[in-house]
């Protein structure tokens, strides 16, 4: 009995089960919901969320109340920079990725330095950075939508590349493998878990904890920037607040995926399933044709239910 309970409350199993239940619900509510091409569309949206959530996962696993709330602004920045670098030309795709990824990587590193050197709480540092980046975006674009995606980039995100699947899904799968390799097959990966679960012990074993944590925030920024490039490929053009909608879902996908906000545990495969489950939930709620407030109530209630299942902190004991 206990064993069944352990299996059923395993985040991976739970996320997979909710995906199946949501698909079934969607199909019942609106026949055709679970059709192949619809599922591919949902997976593309999940991939975008999943890519930001990869950076978020790294920062959260690294511990010390790690969280990156600047990812939304960095996605917007990545999208605007990429859009202007490409301005609709295929030749501009590589420069676009380099510019978007490079700039957001540096901003992420600044977040990391603020957190490690100045010891500013991550929540405050990344929120403060959000304000700065948003201000920078207004200067950069003067509030007007600017730049367009190159045709090949839009094809990569929206049209089938291989086996009927768009290229961006292969990119996401590669990212999943990369995250697995980084976290489970490299010394750096084990160091990230070590400092996340017991920072003091990690410092005492001689790990360069500050350097690693700075790098994690840099990677989160980089992944957000690259996500921005994908977002402009998905939508075709960009505006200064295009990334805002991803901030809290990225944190929630991490939590649904079984990564404790306390740090030091979890893996990215759970987060991938979490991103899919979250996207499906939003899609099912849209299909229900509820009023906006009805969707909000259900969304909030589902989050609380998830917290009940595995977002609880340890009980204090005497």
């Amino acid at each position: 009995m206990n064993r069944i309970k352990t299996i059923l409350t395993d985040p991976l199993v739970l996320a997979a089960l909710s995906i199946l239940v949501l698909l079934a619900m969607g199909e019942v509510l609106s026949p055709g919901f679970a059709r192949g091409d619809q599922i591919i569309r949902l997976l593309v949206v999940s991939a975008i969320l999943g890519m930001v959530a990869a950076g978020q996962s790294l920062v959260v696993i690294g511990g010390r109340e790690g969280i990156d709330l600047s990812v939304g602004a960095l996605i917007s920045l990545g999208a605007v920079l990429a859009g202007n670098a490409m301005s609709g030309n295929d030749g501009g795709i590589l420069p676009a990725i380099l510019v978007a990824g490079g700039v957001t990587f540096v901003i992420g590193l600044i977040n990391g330095l603020g957190v490690t050197l100045l010891r500013i709480p991550p929540l405050v540092m990344t929120l403060g950075m959000t304000g700065v980046v948003q201000g920078g975006l207004i200067v950069l674009s003067r509030g007007i939508p600017s730049g367009n995606a190159a045709p090949s980039l839009m094809g990569f995100v929206n049209r089938p590349l291989l086996l009927g699947l768009p290229g961006v899904l292969f990119l996401w799968a590669l990212l999943g493998l990369g995250m697995w390799f980084l976290l489970r097959r490299t010394q750096l990966g084990y160091a990230i878990y070590a400092m996340g679960s017991n920072e003091r012990a990690a410092v005492l074993t001689g790990l360069p904890v500050r350097l690693i944590r700075t790098l994690l925030y840099g990677l989160s920024g980089l992944l957000a920037g690259v996500t921005g490039v994908v977002v402009i490929g998905y939508t075709g053009n960009s505006f200064v607040s295009v990334g805002d909608q991803y901030v809290l879902p990225s944190v929630i996908a991490v939590v649904i995926g079984g990564i404790s906000l306390a740090g030091g545990s979890g893996n990215y495969f759970g987060v991938m399933l979490g991103a899919i489950a979250l996207t499906l939930l939003q899609s099912v709620l849209t299909t229900l044709q509820l009023e906006f407030w009805g969707r909000q109530l259900i969304f909030g209630a589902v989050l609380l239910l998830l917290m009940l299942l595995y977002g609880r902190t340890k009980q204090l004991r005497v």
């Binding site: 944190v251 407030w293 909000q296 969304f299 909030g300 609380l304 917290m307 609880r312």
Partner: peptide
């Protein structure tokens, strides 16, 4: 009650209740 009695994580929990309160506000006055 959610944070202290049920021991939910405060950040995600108050984010979720924020969504619920916001939804209720829209229900009361669209």
């Amino acid at each position: 009650a959610l944070v202290a009695l049920l021991r939910f994580q405060a950040i995600v929990t108050t984010f979720a209740t924020g969504i619920i309160f916001g939804g209720l506000a829209l229900m009361v006055l669209p």
